[in-house]
Write a protein that binds this DNA or RNA. Structure first.
Lengths: 125, 125
DNA sequence: GTTACCAGTATCATAGAGTATACCAGCAAT
DNA sequence: ATTGCTGGTATACTCTATGATACTGGTAAC
């Protein structure tokens, strides 16, 4: 992201000093939806093409079956993912991203970038 | 953020499918640093020009003195903010953002934008 | 018939994130 | 002398997000 682009976004997003309250609100709303340790990694995994439960599970080191199950339910309720069951035998379950889910792409990309830069910075010492 | 810009960022950040692990790592590192309910609102507040303890506190509805105190200590230890004491009487304490702190600007801007868009979406129903 | 994969659920335990409330010393203004 | 500001601490409590472990019912492969 270059400075021009950042300025444009800042101008679009940040209104005037008076609306700081509104901005904090917006920030906290977002944190509420994608907060916690696993939601963003899950969104990222599904947006990266993982669809099946175990596939998603394996793609996220450290997550437990229980947490994945809970988060996916939560995210399905919030229309972040779509759960499709195909009645093969045994049943095939697929999770797919919604448009809503993709609306976090920018945030996730920036967070991945930050994390990578962070590692680099640590290495340099 | 337009599609071109997004593609450029995606290309820069997302390597190839083989490095999904690394991406999850990067994402989780970032979540670890700015996770929780208050860190991002605090960073945002300080980057917006708030400097004094009570000033920051008042700018973030709902936060308690204790949480702000804890988080600021944590963030100072992690070089996210700088604490300056001026020996006036009584002493004046100022918190100021470091460059490191500003490196979250993009993420915060996008999260504020997401939160605002989210509210709009809810209104429309 | 044993092992392994799928998509989960059930149960129990726990650290630590977050809340509530009160309090402190130093100073200024009324 | 009382109220209110500053920059916090202290104590006690709740609660929920997360972790660990085990289990299930169906299927297929060896």
């Amino acid at each position: 992201m270059n400075q021009d682009e950042r300025n444009r976004l800042a101008e679009e997003v940040l209104s005037n000093p008076r609306n700081q309250r509104e901005e904090v609100q917006a920030l906290q709303d977002t944190i509420y939806v994608i907060g916690g340790k696993w939601k963003l990694p899950i969104i990222n995994s599904i947006c990266n093409g993982n669809r099946r439960f175990r596939e998603i599970e394996r793609s996220i080191p450290g997550i437990t079956t229980r947490m994945l199950s809970r988060e996916l339910k939560d995210m399905e309720a919030n229309k972040l993912v779509k759960r499709t069951v195909t009645p093969t035998s045994p049943v095939t379950v697929e999770y797919s991203p919604t448009d809503y889910c993709y609306s976090f792409a920018d945030i996730i990309l920036h967070m991945i970038k930050w994390g990578k830069d962070h590692r680099e910075r640590l290495k340099e010492r």
